[in-house]
């Protein structure tokens, strides 16, 4: 199956599972015999800081470098609203944004008086869609889906499922199930496949 070049940015908070998300996207590309290059945030920022994952998929020759340039991402997968807005400069004009709308409050915001609840960020994203900056915005109630699945750890796979649906790539479901087989520990595979299905039907 031939897929055109696809630059994806994954944005979230350390601990939310962004690294596995970019690895799953890359593994799926590998299964589809595409070229792929990723860059993950591993290290200090994993302790609750802002983290970005870059995934660059090409049909034939790989991208030269692993980082998605600014204004170049076709798809931005956001794990919480402020991080989605923070990563928006990476999105190309009219690109697709799939984001969870439940905020993760940083301690600094909880401490201060300026409350952060994500509503301003979601409104901003909507206005970006209205203005054409974002071509398609998909807001995912990741919280509810995770609750339904009985685990908070599968937000990453839920969002991947939602992203596949947003790109009309439901047919890639088996590929992603294979990717889960390759990268997820056996006892969590069924749960993750379920999360993929939930995300795709959300």
């Amino acid at each position: 199956m031939s897929t055109p070049s696809l630059d994806i940015v994954v944005a979230g908070v350390g601990g939310q599972g962004t690294v596995l998300a970019s690895k799953l996207l890359a593994q799926a590309a590998l299964i589809e015999s595409l070229s792929v290059r990723t860059a993950e945030t591993i290290g200090m920022a994993q302790r609750g800081g802002s983290v970005l994952g870059h995934v660059r998929i090409r049909a034939d020759l790989p991208a030269a470098s692993p980082l998605v340039p600014l204004n170049a991402a076709d798809l931005l997968i956001g794990f919480e609203p402020a991080e989605t807005v923070r990563a928006l400069p990476y999105l190309r004009e009219g690109g697709t944004v799939v984001t969870a709308h439940k905020p993760v409050e940083p301690v600094s915001a909880t401490l201060g008086d300026a409350a952060y609840d994500g509503t301003a960020e979601v409104a901003y994203l909507r206005s970006c869609e209205g203005a054409g900056r974002i071509g398609r915005l998909v807001l995912v109630d990741g919280d509810a889906l995770c609750e339904k699945l009985g685990s908070t750890k599968v937000l990453n796979v839920v969002l991947i499922g939602a992203a596949l649906k947003a790109q009309n790539r439901e047919s890639a479901r088996e590929t992603y199930e294979q990717a889960i087989e390759s990268l997820v520990k056996p006892r969590f595979r069924a749960l993750n496949k379920q999360a993929l299905a939930e995300g795709m039907s959300a």
Partner: peptide, 17 residues
């Protein structure tokens, strides 16, 4: 563009903790 885009909200800082 046809419709205006809202100004970007001030994002919370998110250092590692």
């Amino acid at each position: 563009e046809s419709r205006s885009q809202e100004p970007q909200p001030q994002l919370p800082a998110r250092p590692p903790v």
